[in-house]
Design a protein around this nucleic acid. Structure first.
Lengths: 329, 329
DNA sequence: TTGTAAGCGTTATCAA
DNA sequence: TTGATAACGCTTACAA
């Protein structure tokens, strides 16, 4: 049995297709006819054909979410919250993972996906890839986790986040301060966010007369923690060292090593993470919170706003980190 | 300036739209006209409109990849490989993340995404959600990481994987055998894969007369390793215990604890992981390999095959695990 | 407030 | 091998 079309609905309810379309899209129709039409729609189980709708010039109500290979809790929670708001507003999210530079080029050359969208969110991507010369979305774009004055964008004040971590660790009495960062040469990713955290941290230290040098910057990797030895030596060689982990993941590595070495967090050493991932509370990890849900939601609001009221000024939205103080610092 | 359409191409090259369409879709056209048309396409920078194409009954060349919230290396590598083959065959992947049951229901009630696809791959999802009664894709479906005789599917022999791990650990001389599994009550995920690994492991043990009970099953969590204390006690209390980590991630936790406790893998204890994630070689972790790239590619082949030759029999494709023997066992 | 009909950009059918 | 033309299912003037 064929799927019912707008014509079927029209003839069953004894009106023209235009009227049905108006019912569907919120045009002005008499209440009694609206009800008639709705009944017919219900009875037939009619679902508008998006493809036809798009071709006829309607909106797709579909938003593209461009993301690099991100497997962090942070990004998933942002995405979930983003999607939830979209859903509430009757929009739909389509994800396009940018595994590689090549895939991004493909997106540029093959506009079929872009033809189908009302807007796009570009997530945590290197600014150089975002230039209009590189990809012309010909559509509404909001950047997430990068700054730009060419596009609307949503980001967190990472410099401030770094400063807050530094301030707290000094307050705890640490004089030897370390940063655990990560080692990644993925050119697609926006690494500026990490750099800013380090910048905030070190500049605060400098202001307060503390020393920081490259040696105190420890590298690990996102999914295979590789800094065991370095961490073990920091924990055993220094007196109450202060450690700033640029992501909660990295802090976990420290906690594990410490647990095995019988070092007590908040006493033998101090530790501040970043993100406020869901497990950190249970673990008692002090961390710099990013308001993931708010950020995701705001991104959704922004893109929908742009779609529905075109031609607005570019809006940068800056979120502020906040301190979740728990046992480790 | 408006985008050029097929009509523009037709008139510029002095042929009918039908001919242009045939050039585009591989119908039979005289070589000289083909060249003429190609030149016009090039000159205008013409790109076919996918939406119109779809409405007119053409294929979208778009495949939906339905996935739960998976942040593992395994799934991303499978996805990459899947996507790469699709790309080669001029198909396109669209990801639909199933954050929750609710989102799956939404997919069912809102067919706009499904209207746009030629086929769907359903990844690592609980079989109960896959019943035709629940979602009618009305399209070609291939299951990844679940078994079914209703759908084509691609999966690994996890029972065999478990057996291989057991065999190796016994061969190493361990008499106390442990499994590290994970604690997850996400009802959307196909947990059968983990259960089968355990089944294979324990049944082999039983055959060989080894004892295994619930106490030897240690639970941790995927992204926040929570089994520190259990692992520490296993490592210190037993003589050369054998540990089977149901995913390489979990093995990492063991390696870290061991490193801090000065226990030497492959000597003081034996450890077998699962997946053969990229970092395991560097870490010297013995592991049960899943051929991720092959599996992703095969999944792509299968779905394209179904699309292009409809009405075939249901094909289950079983992959075999293999042992990557390194330092830890 | 309504119905009619002209697009939207393709593919597919059918004569020529 | 071709060109003309009828779908495809919708939105949106325009006229009634």
């Amino acid at each position: 049995m064929k799927k019912p079309t707008i014509k079927d609905v029209a003839s069953l309810s004894g009106v023209g297709t235009g009227t049905v379309s108006r019912v569907l899209n919120g045009g002005s129709v008499k209440e009694t006819t609206r009800i008639k039409v709705m009944k017919a729609i219900d009875k037939l189980g009619y679902q508008p054909n998006q493809v036809a709708r798009t071709l006829a010039g309607g909106k797709t109500k579909r938003i593209l979410f461009l993301m690099p290979e991100i497997r962090t809790e942070f990004h998933w929670r942002v995405m979930k919250s983003f999607d939830e708001y979209l859903d509430k507003m009757n929009y739909e999210m389509v994800i396009y993972p940018v595994f590689s530079d090549k895939r991004l080029k493909k997106l540029r050359s093959d506009p079929s996906l872009i033809q189908n969208i009302d807007g796009a969110v570009i997530c945590t991507m290197n600014i150089e890839f975002l230039s209009r010369k590189y990809i012309d979305f010909g559509t509404n774009v909001v950047l997430f986790e990068s700054q730009s004055d060419e596009f609307d964008c949503v980001y967190l004040d990472n410099v401030l986040g770094g400063r807050m971590a530094a301030e707290l660790l000094i307050e705890c009495g640490s004089t030897d301060l370390f940063v655990i960062s990560f080692d990644e040469e993925n050119t697609i990713l926006a690494t500026e966010n990490f750099e800013k955290r380090i910048l905030g941290f070190t500049s605060y230290l400098k202001e307060k007369g503390y020393e920081f040098n490259e040696e105190k910057l420890v590298y690990t990797s996102f999914f295979f923690e590789t800094a065991h030895e370095r961490i073990a030596s920091i924990l055993s060689e220094y007196d109450r060292p202060g450690i700033f982990a640029l992501a909660d993941n990295f802090a976990l590595e420290v906690l594990q090593m410490a647990s095995a070495m019988k070092k007590i967090p908040g006493k033998d050493f101090f530790l501040v993470g970043y993100d406020n991932q869901s497990w950190t509370e249970r673990a008692g990890l002090t961390t710099i919170e990013q308001p993931m849900e708010d950020m995701g939601r705001k991104t959704a609001e922004l893109i929908i706003q742009k779609i529905e009221n075109p031609g607005q000024y570019v809006q940068p939205v800056k979120f502020l980190p906040s301190l979740k103080r728990r046992k480790t610092a």
